[in-house]
Design a protein around this nucleic acid. Sequence first.
DNA 1: AAAACAAATGTGTTCGTACACACAATATGA
DNA 2: TCATATTGTGTGTACGAACACATTTGTTTT
Lengths: 358, 358
Amino acid sequence: MKTEDEGSTLRIVDIARMAHVSTGTVDRVIHNRGKVSAENLQKVKAVLEMVDYRPNLMARSLASKRSYVIYAVIPSFEVGDYWADVYAGINRAIEEVGRYNVLIKIVYFDKYSELSFNRVVQDLKTRKFDAVLIATLFSDCVISFSKYLEKLSVPYVYLDSHIPDQKQLAYFGTSSQETGHVAARLLYSKVGVDKDILIGQIVHDDNSLSTQWINRELGFKNYLESVGFKGNLRYAKLRSGDESYNFKVLDDIFQSHENIVGAITFNSTCHVLGEYIKSRDHLNITLIGYDITKKNVDMLSGGVVSALIAQRPEIQGHCGIISIYEHLVLGRKVNSINYMPIDILVKENILFYNNIGL
Amino acid sequence: MKTEDEGSTLRIVDIARMAHVSTGTVDRVIHNRGKVSAENLQKVKAVLEMVDYRPNLMARSLASKRSYVIYAVIPSFEVGDYWADVYAGINRAIEEVGRYNVLIKIVYFDKYSELSFNRVVQDLKTRKFDAVLIATLFSDCVISFSKYLEKLSVPYVYLDSHIPDQKQLAYFGTSSQETGHVAARLLYSKVGVDKDILIGQIVHDDNSLSTQWINRELGFKNYLESVGFKGNLRYAKLRSGDESYNFKVLDDIFQSHENIVGAITFNSTCHVLGEYIKSRDHLNITLIGYDITKKNVDMLSGGVVSALIAQRPEIQGHCGIISIYEHLVLGRKVNSINYMPIDILVKENILFYNNIGL
DNA sequence: AAAACAAATGTGTTCGTACACACAATATGA
DNA sequence: TCATATTGTGTGTACGAACACATTTGTTTT
């Protein structure tokens, strides 16, 4: 606990006077520029500590000639997508700090293509920058890129899903397993103990599931097990964009398993299941999904999806940039793991979800 | 849409040069200080408009000698209370902007006493300040105070519950009726169409219900009506802190109405019902309440309360102060009505609720 | 002992804006 | 006509910190 200063903020000149040195010396101490005698170093540090010196950030930013380049590496998106919200948050951060010694550049990759991510990384390796914000869709690639960044001592911030044992400056996102618990709880409370649940796996070309999917599903199953769920989990492998195929697969499953009364997907594509449920009029089925995309929200408002789980993408994007700003420009400490709140959205509270005040 | 400037930000000297006047003249135009010829006023305004001049806020704040006093008028609280979170948000705002030309002072009133609120108001009338943040617990008193503030052209920001047709600079809080809908939906989905619901009214000395309570209850009933709820609403008038009395009242109600399977309170005192339900082992009853107070959260974690509805009090406090800062210091426009998201908290997602990133 | 050098320390200018003040131009009154 | 307001206009300094550069002090070399 620091004692409350009565308004009067001490400046560098004050520190200098108190330590009986010049402002230049204080400046050198503050910035570890060296060329200070051991004795003076000691004295100045003591005074700084004692008065809990806080630099005037306005003055600092004004005087500082140093300027920083930050790259944000995120998936490309369309209006209403999940990543559109992240982008909005990044943009809000740019509005706030973009003029003050930081230049933020956004580069995009294809969220279904590891290759495209790696291409972006290769391109970045030819460029000069001071920090990176990375959407961690492809863990392995991200880890390898992080190694490279560490060698250059370039700080990096992760967004979206957590990668353990990394040296990121900060991570913003949810605990994927916990979101699985929440999803399971919501579904279980409607489905009951002995009915079946459909898990819709909407896969893209490469046929692989993301780490986030895997962790969410893990959390989901853990919860069901913990509450003694006795029903079955039925899997439907669906294809993004191929409606006739999907409908056929789903028809088969629902015909052979009449006990299915709940359904879920572990990414933002639950609208695919929603379209089927809606067109087949299976409205007794409780459908739960992730992320506040336009399609999902429409399904929620229309009563097809009963709940969506969200993780404040806008805030994630915003905090991601701001944390870098605070680190680089203001020299502040930032938490390395920041789990975002897990939001439960239903028809009745979706309206205000994106009102985040300022 | 403004055109994107390629980095280079124009300064006052640049504007001056472009308009063929001195920086002093530009300054006078920007701040409406007068003493500028019609001709020059025109020219400078045109240039400012054309280049979409954005002052360097750092430099402005540094150079400005003007400093502002903001009062925050909120209820006193104990650790773990609802208003403790609001206070935390205000404090975070103080950390952020408190050093830069604004002095924020907090004054407290007793949340159960209109008189104490009015006393605070009377005291404020003897003081000098530039803006106020007001917790709108007592609408009538707030309206009368607002009239006074309008005469002095002192901007005021409302927190907590909305008062229509006022000229507040900004309001931060939820739409009370909507939160009633959400509560009803959650309860209804567990209770079903023909069971009874207990409404616990925990009243204080003055025996009156807050506007917020009334609106939440209104929204609650509207929802139940819209979905064709056929059960009965049973009311229990309880006293804060008088456990033996409350238990007796509740025992009576539950004995005479065996059909009650759901319960709710429309303020943060649902733990009072929770204590009863827990001690009588009525754990089949679905209990829903408002606000993330320590007592409520404990009940939620313990499985007694099944869901809590929250409205980001920390963010409200923070945004309240920041909106005043933006208005006074930065001269920015702020939205006059800001409905906060309505959060649904259950056992599984309560853990991360207060992680708000930065 | 003087010169050369390195290390330590102090001074001065700069960032973009606010604002006080000096000065110029015009108008008003005696 | 001169003195005095009145209004418009430009200049200079301050804000607090960063950083370049000048100066002092101490040490080593010749």
